[in-house]
Write a protein that binds this DNA or RNA. Structure first.
Length: 621
DNA sequence: GAGTTTGAAACT
DNA sequence: CAGTTTCAAACTC
């Protein structure tokens, strides 16, 4: 607790930092700010369609996301806890890697609170600890080179330094970052998220999440690894002998298990510690999740539809296994799963009971749904990946073996095949794979269907020079920002209801969005809005007054008209337009009727279908 | 599969 | 804001 004596010590120790230019810089940074979740009244517009994930900033349904805590990412490296931990770790144990990673982890968490700095880092001067950290990170970086190619498959594209950081994962990232910290600015790139990345709206990026899982599995560097999972609400990670945990509720706990110290930085904060046995917990929980998925405990389609690019596995939310990812998708496929894990509250309780026992891992791992992709990838490849990992010294392949053991007679291949089928089905339902063929846009413009839909490109895509991949997450985000700056609604659903009630939107018999309309309308000139060049037609909605099309024959039914009367179904817009088209009326009417029937029967676009499915589900709630 | 058409997106 | 260019999907052969 904050006794006067402790405060006095803190104040004295803090002076060690004040002289540091680094600290001065940090001190000038803006404080961390919580991000308010979107209002629920955005549901109708956001849940549907191609609305992006948390990676993107467009409003979206937040039903399954814990809105209690969101962190706005700051592009700064926090030097408070990292230095402390590194200093302690270097001094006390060979678990240097943990310390380095902790350095990265704390980036998001602590915004340089002097009191914390003072309390925790009494053992070494700030500069000394920092230099130790840099030295350590450098040495570790050199030792990690061989792992990079295994961690992620390289893109054919050369990567810039920024991407390189993101690709290589936390260690190199951290090392580079640390070096940069000392050499020039303290700018900490938000995209270098190998170790930890939290995103706005409280999710963790795919990249960060998967790396987090790697670390949970202890895969990266065998014995030196610590269990680590990240959560915007609750970060906890540990090493021996130092155990270190950070809570977002203004607390930092440092536990020296050998009994030397236990520093409670902030009064009232729960003490959360993890140790290496957490790896066992991770493995067990992942295995459990694998089994559960096969027994049907998968998230509903509704959840999937809401969680697009980055699925979030929040505290209090349902648990969703993060599926394996194909190596061609840039990220490791092993251990790319997170499973049932208790809430932080449960974590606290468990850890209090016995920190040497299996410690639950805090949840909230985000994942791009595209990681579901590539169900066709053979399990042999996955196995090969595992073996490769093993050859590279990734010790905890148990994380993949666990489901095999748990399957009682079902082979690994069968298990994977079953899972892949399910993933494939889910993928099809969501229409997640756009299979773009972009050549020049780098898949970072709205030309790219994948990008426009808030999806990463995946293996089925035949795009060239693609940057719309998790390893280029920074670029994706930036591209997104640029586009949204130009048009804030660029990523908004293109089809929205014109009705007040979502229930009205869905014609159960005809599967028709009776009141759905393209928000911006089309501008077709030659296609008559009867080909898929026309976005209205593509989305399965009729042209409306929003459209500026010429010779429109996409005579959809307006909200007050009935579907059965196909021949009568003429929109107001069409009436005006049809005045220009009387010469071709007879043949066109036939086409129009076909179009209407088609529209009434099926929303051909997966996006539109998904959108309406979401609306229908919403109406059922 | 190559070439053409089309309209949205991007650019000026 | 309008005109032009770029782009990738849709379409045709």
């Amino acid at each position: 607790m904050d006794t006067p004596e402790k405060n006095r010590i803190s104040a004295v120790s803090f002076r060690n930092f004040e002289d540091s230019p680094v600290f001065q810089y940090i001190n000038d940074l803006s404080p961390i700010e919580p991000v308010k979740p979107p209002r629920s009244d955005n549901i109708l517009h956001s849940l549907a369609f191609t609305s992006p994930s948390s990676l993107f900033s467009s409003p979206q349904l937040n039903s399954y996301r814990d809105s209690r805590f969101s962190i706005k990412r700051h592009r700064t490296l926090d030097l408070s806890s990292p230095v402390v931990v590194i200093g302690e770790t270097v001094k006390n144990s060979p678990d240097a890697l943990e310390a380095v990673k902790i350095t990265g982890l704390s980036e998001e968490q602590l915004k340089c609170r002097p009191a914390r700095l003072a309390n925790v880092s009494e053992t070494k001067p700030f500069k000394e600890q920092l230099s130790l950290a840099i030295e350590l990170a450098d040495s570790l970086k050199n030792g990690r080179e061989g792992c990079d190619s295994q961690m992620v498959s390289c893109d054919e594209e050369p990567m810039d330094a920024e991407n390189e950081i993101g690709r290589s994962g936390g260690l190199r990232e951290l090392s580079d970052e640390l070096c940069r910290q000392t050499n020039d600015s303290l700018d900490f790139d938000a995209g270098s998220d190998g170790v930890l990345q939290t995103e706005e709206m409280g999710t963790v990026s795919v990249f960060g999440a998967e790396n987090a899982m790697l670390e949970v599995a202890g895969i990266q560097n065998s014995e030196q690894q610590i269990p680590k999972i990240t959560d915007p609400k609750f970060y906890s990670f540990a090493s021996e002998p130092l155990q270190f945990s950070i809570c977002c509720n203004n607390s930092v706990n440092v536990v020296e298990p050998r009994g030397s110290c236990s520093v409670q930085i902030s009064p009232g904060a729960p003490e959360i510690t993890l140790n290496r046995s957490s790896k066992v917990a991770a493995i067990a929980s992942i295995a459990e999740a694998e089994c559960k998925e096969d027994t049907g405990l998968q998230p509903s389609r509704k959840q999937q539809s809401v969680r697009r690019r980055c699925l979030t596995f929040d505290v209090g939310g349902s648990h969703k296994k993060i599926p394996l990812r194909d190596s061609t998708n840039d990220l490791p496929l092993h251990s790319a799963s997170i499973s049932k894990a208790p809430s932080p509250q449960e974590c606290l309780e468990t850890s209090k009971q016995d920190t040497d026992e299996i410690i639950p891992i805090p949840r909230t791992i985000g994942l791009h749904l595209n990681s579901f992709v590539n169900p066709s990838v053979s399990s042999d490849r996955k196995k090969k990946k595992i073996n490769d990992d093993r050859d590279l010294g990734y010790s905890d392949v148990k994380i993949m073996e666990a489901p095999e053991r748990s399957m009682e007679g079902e082979s690994f291949d069968q298990h994977m095949a079953t899972k892949n089928r399910k993933l494939s089905q889910g993928l099809d339902e969501l229409g997640s794979c756009k299979r773009c063929k972009c050549r020049k846009s780098k898949c970072l413009k709205l030309y790219c269907d994948c990008f426009a839909a808030g999806l990463y490109c995946v293996e089925p895509c035949s795009c060239q020079n693609c940057f719309n991949k998790p390893i280029h997450e920074d670029l994706v985000i930036k591209a997104r920002e640029v586009i949204e700056a130009r048009n804030p609604l660029a990523f908004a659903p293109k089809v929205v209801s014109t009705s007040d009630s979502a229930i009205d939107l869905w014609d159960e018999n005809s599967k028709t969005p009776a009141s759905a309309r393209h928000t911006r309308g089309c501008n077709c000139r030659k296609s008559g809005c009867l080909k898929k060049y026309c976005e209205c037609y593509m989305m399965g909605v009729g042209c409306s007054s929003n459209c500026r099309c010429m010779g429109c024959k996409n005579n959809f039914i307006h909200k007050n008209e009935k579907c059965e009367g196909e021949s009568d179904a003429v929109t107001i817009n069409d009436e005006a337009k049809d005045n220009d088209d009387h010469a071709d009326a007879s043949s066109q009417n036939e086409d129009a009727s076909k179009s209407e029937r088609r529209n009434c029967v099926l929303l051909q676009s997966p996006v539109a279908f998904r959108s309406l499915a979401s609306l229908r589900k919403l109406s059922e709630l």
